[in-house]
């Protein structure tokens, strides 16, 4: 059973169509609600108790919920109305009075120049259509003493492995744009006026059944991913540690940068 097609097929509509009905799944997903990377973001936020922080592409809101008790103000920003409704409701339930929600695109931020001390973005950048534009905007809204932290699934540097990652990400999620490698992130950040000054790499285990269920991936796409997993080379199987049930392990990174 495939989902009804969106009315208009621009990228933003595909993203909204993909994530709107799944908002609740992201609020409760353990992969998203927990993690060492999230602890790292909280540790960075705690060093700046007076900060105004932008959670760029907040999704289910986990960065915002985690850092709100430790900073002065959090703005949770996302393209998806359904996600933001959930975030606003959950923030009220948790008594997070310093978290507000704004809806818009990463590439066109509706904030004044130098209005944030911290810009955090977790598991979002792979949906952005124009990463250079989004990074220029992040640079613009950050104070000179500010800090940008990008936390996302990263592509392996080897094309063989990179291609496999992009293929199964797209099959799982039609709104997938691209996962970048750490070296690509460093180049993108430098071009946008940042000095990349910290990288923490991690590996993330993904349980296949919940990974496709969260996205309600079409059965034909699930079958295609499983078929790919079986037919790929030993190098690919080894890198992603592909299990008999389809579960696998991907690379993530937290990349920190400060304005030039």
């Amino acid at each position: 059973m495939s989902l009804p097609a969106p009315d208009a097929n621009n990228h933003e509509t595909v993203v909204e169509h993909q994530f709107g009905p799944r908002a609740a799944a992201y609020l409760t997903s353990a992969v998203h609600a927990q993690g060492e990377d999230l602890n790292q973001l909280v540790a960075i936020a705690r060093t700046r108790p007076a900060a105004r922080l932008l959670d760029l592409g907040c999704g289910g809101g986990h960065v915002g919920f985690s850092v709100a008790p430790h900073v002065a103000e959090v703005v949770a920003y996302d393209l998806s109305a359904a996600m933001l409704d959930q975030v606003a409701q959950a923030a009220r339930q948790r008594g997070l009075g310093n978290l507000t929600t704004r809806r818009g695109a990463a590439e066109q931020l509706p904030f004044e120049d130098q209005s944030f001390d911290l810009v955090f973005s977790r598991y979002s950048a792979h949906h952005w259509q124009d990463v250079p534009a989004a990074l220029r905007e992040a640079r613009r809204v950050l104070r000179p003493t500010g800090r940008l932290v990008i936390d996302d699934v990263v592509a392996p540097e080897r094309p063989l492995l990179d291609t496999h990652l992009q293929a199964f990400e797209l099959l799982r999620d039609p709104s997938h744009v691209r996962n970048y490698s750490v070296s690509q992130w460093q180049a993108l950040l430098s071009t946008a006026g940042f000095e990349p000054d910290g990288v923490m790499r991690r590996r993330l285990f993904l349980d296949f059944a919940s990974w496709v269920e969260r996205m309600q991936t079409a059965a034909v796409h699930v079958a295609a991913i499983r078929s790919l997993q079986i037919e790929v080379s030993a190098e690919v199987k080894a890198h992603f540690d592909i299990q008999a049930d389809g579960s696998f392990t991907i690379d993530t990174a937290v990349v920190e940068a400060s304005p030039h």
Partner: peptide, 28 residues
């Protein structure tokens, strides 16, 4: 502003010279 959330998307904004009721949203 919907449900207290400002919608800062140019595609969903209303041109000021248009009728605020009928043109509040682009056709879907």
């Amino acid at each position: 502003i919907r449900d207290g959330i400002p919608i800062m998307l140019v595609d969903e904004a209303r041109p000021l010279d248009s009728d605020p009721i009928t043109d509040a949203l682009p056709p879907r």
